[in-house]
């Protein structure tokens, strides 16, 4: 088999194999790039409201928690309760952190829900699983390198590396160098 034909086979099959993860990483990459502007993994909702805690003993965390959750209509699983100080009660339920001012009855809720697809995409892209995924992601990175190199040698002639290819490859190097110079 001629080396160029072998190169095309490698490029084609690696391309098929890498397609899924490349799309996942591309979408996650854009999402994470803009982390200054938004949370790419969770939808956060902040709600200010109030509850009436009259008649409940202020030291009775259990009764206070039960009343707050009932008045807010919060039915998610209770994780923990923390008495920050005499006037502040923090109630942690799944996907909701509730801070109650026991003096005024003012309530601040911080609800978080996972962004569909992006949560999972970022989980993989940012290598949160660690373990075996690290090796798999390394293998994927090597595959991308192979795809890039084999892509250089797909075509011959004027449209190949010897022709316009060399200029475009050059531009591909110059762009990151330009930004490195710009921000140095």
């Amino acid at each position: 088999m001629k080396w160029r034909k072998f190169n095309i086979i490698i490029h084609r099959d690696l391309g098929y194999l890498c397609f899924g993860l490349t799309i996942i990483y591309a979408i996650s990459g854009v999402a994470v790039n803009h982390i200054q502007d938004w949370n790419p993994t969770y939808v956060l909702e902040k709600i200010v409201s109030s509850v009436n805690l009259a008649g409940i003993e202020s030291a009775d965390n259990e009764a206070l928690t039960s009343s707050v959750l009932e008045q807010l209509g919060e039915t998610s699983e209770l994780k923990n309760v923390y008495r920050q100080d005499a006037d502040t009660l923090k109630i942690f339920v799944v996907n909701n952190n509730i801070t109650v001012d026991l003096n005024t009855g003012s309530v601040f809720q911080e609800k978080s829900t996972k962004r569909p697809f992006l949560y999972e995409a970022n989980f993989l892209h940012l290598n949160h699983p660690k373990k075996l995924w690290t090796w798999f992601a390394d293998l994927y990175a090597v595959s991308l390198g192979l795809l890039a190199v084999s892509g250089l040698f797909i075509l011959k002639g004027k449209k190949g590396l010897a022709g316009r290819g060399k200029w475009l490859v050059g531009v591909g190097f110059v762009i990151p160098l330009f930004f490195l110079w710009l921000y140095s």
């Binding site: 956060l44 994780k79 923990n80 942690f92 339920v93 996907n95 978080s112 940012l126």
Partner: peptide
């Protein structure tokens, strides 16, 4: 990266 779900956990 600590997940939001870590709050309220020991």
């Amino acid at each position: 990266v600590f997940p939001m779900s870590a709050s309220g956990r020991m």
